[in-house]
Computed example of a mutant assay.
Amino acid sequence: MNIILLNSKRGHSRTLSVPRHLPVILLAVLMVVPVLVGVGAYWVSYRWAPPSYTDAVAARFQDHLDAQAHEVSELKRLSEEQIRALTLKLADAQARLTRLDALGERLVDVAGIDSEEFDFGGGMAVGGPETEEGSAFTPPSFLEELSALTETLERREQQLNILENLLADRHLESETFLAGRPIVHGWMSSRFGRRADPFTGKLAWHGGVDFAGKDGSDVVATAAGVVTFAGERTGYGKLVEINHGNGISTRYGHAKEVSVEVGDIVRTGDVVALMGSTGRSTGPHVHYEVLKDGRQVNPHPYIYRARR
C-alpha cells in the first residue's frame, strides 16, 4: 500500500510505502484500547472502591421483606375475620327474612286478605332470554348476595307497612262501626218517630229511642269516637255527644252523671254516663239519638245490626 504526498509550492510528489496490515492494526488498536480502559477502570473501582451491596444492606432488605410479609399476613387475617363476621350477619338477616315471611303469612291469614300482592310464601318471579351457548356462568359475589337480600328486605318491609295500614284501617272501621244498644241492662221504652208527648199528650215527634233501666246504671258508647259535648242542654238534661267520623254522631241524654269530658277518645262499650232522669224526663232512662250529617235518623237499623 502506497501513500502519495504532493507539494503544492514546488510541484513535486513523494511516495511513501505503507505496510499492508497497518490499517487493520490501527483499527484493532482503536477498538481494543477503549475496552481495555473500561475493564481497567471497572477493576480498579471494584478493587479499591467500597462495595454497594454488603451484608448490612442485605439485612435491611430482609427486614423490610419480613415487615411486608407480616403486614400482608395481618391484612389477610383481618379480611378473613371480617368475611366471617359478614357471613354471620348475612345468615342472621336471612333468618330474620324467613321470620318476616312467616309473620306476613300469619297476618294475611288472620286478616282474611286474599291478594297476590301479599304472597309472602312464594318465591320471586324471575326470567329472561336464553343466553348464548358456551357463555361461562359467573356465580354471584358476596356483595351481590347482600344487595339482593337488602332489596328483598325492603320489599317485605313495604308489604308489611301496607298490610299494617290495612289492618289499622279495618280495626278503625270496626271500632267506629255503629251497632248495638247504649245500655248494658234495660229495655226499650219508646221508639223513634211520632208519639204522644208524655207531658202534654199531644202528637209530637220523637227524634230518638228511649231505653229505661235502673237509676245509675251504665250508659255505654255504641262505637268509638271523640266526645264533642258533655254537659247540660235544654230538654236533654245532662247530655253526652260523640262524633264517630264519616258524618255520624250519637247523643246520650237525661244522664244522672256524665263520665267523660269534651275531647276524650272513647271506644266501643266504654261507659260515658250513668242513667238518670235529668231534663225533660219522667223517669230513669237514656234518650239515644243517631245523627247523620247533623240530621236525626232512625237509630233502629243501627241498634239491631250485627256487631263486626
Rank of each mutant, 00 (worst) to 15 (best):
E154A: 14
G269I: 00
F142Y: 14
T278V: 08
R60A: 10
V272D: 00
S17C: 03
V29D: 03
Y236T: 06
I4T: 14
F142R: 15
D55G: 10
S217V: 02
G127V: 06
D270Y: 00
T15E: 14
F229G: 07
G231V: 08
R195F: 11
T98Y: 14
A221Q: 09
G123R: 10
Y236M: 06
F177T: 05
D55N: 07
S52G: 04
V57P: 01
R251K: 13
S13A: 12
N243D: 15
R170L: 11
L274I: 01
I113A: 10
R170D: 14
P51M: 09
T138E: 10
G247P: 11
V271C: 01
S281R: 13
L291E: 12
A102F: 04
L6W: 13
G134M: 03
G247K: 10
L5V: 12
Y304L: 12
R307F: 04
A179P: 04
V72G: 02
M31R: 02
L65S: 11
S52H: 14
R106L: 10
F137A: 07
G294A: 09
E157C: 02
E154Q: 13
P140V: 09
L97K: 10
F199D: 02
Q68R: 03
K9L: 14
M275A: 01
V44K: 09
R305P: 05
H185E: 07
D119S: 08
P198M: 02
N2K: 12
A85C: 03
H21F: 13
V24I: 05
R170H: 10
G123P: 06
E232R: 11
G213D: 01
W187A: 09
D63L: 03
G245F: 08
E145M: 15
Y252R: 08
L167D: 04
V29F: 01
G121H: 07
T268D: 07
R14A: 14
Y302D: 12
H21D: 15
P139I: 02
G40P: 00
D264F: 01
P23D: 05
A69G: 04
T282Q: 07
K292D: 06
I4Q: 13
V29Y: 02
A306R: 15
E154D: 15
T278R: 06
P284Y: 01
V209E: 10
E130Q: 10
T268H: 14
H185R: 10
A59I: 01
G11E: 07
L88D: 13
D55F: 04
E130K: 12
L167P: 03
Q62W: 00
G237F: 07
E289C: 10
Y302Q: 05
V266Y: 01
R20V: 12
S281H: 09
I3M: 04
G253M: 05
A221E: 10
D264C: 01
N165I: 05
L90R: 15
A102D: 13
V35T: 04
S281M: 07
R60E: 14
I162D: 12
L149N: 12
D215F: 11
L274C: 01
T87V: 11
I248S: 05
R99P: 05
T222Y: 00
D114R: 15
L5A: 05
V219T: 02
G235D: 09
V33N: 00
F142S: 13
V240H: 01
L5C: 03
L143I: 11
K214N: 02
V57T: 09
I113K: 08
S17N: 08
A255G: 11
K292Y: 15
L166W: 09
V262M: 08
D66Q: 11
R267V: 04
P284E: 00
G112I: 09
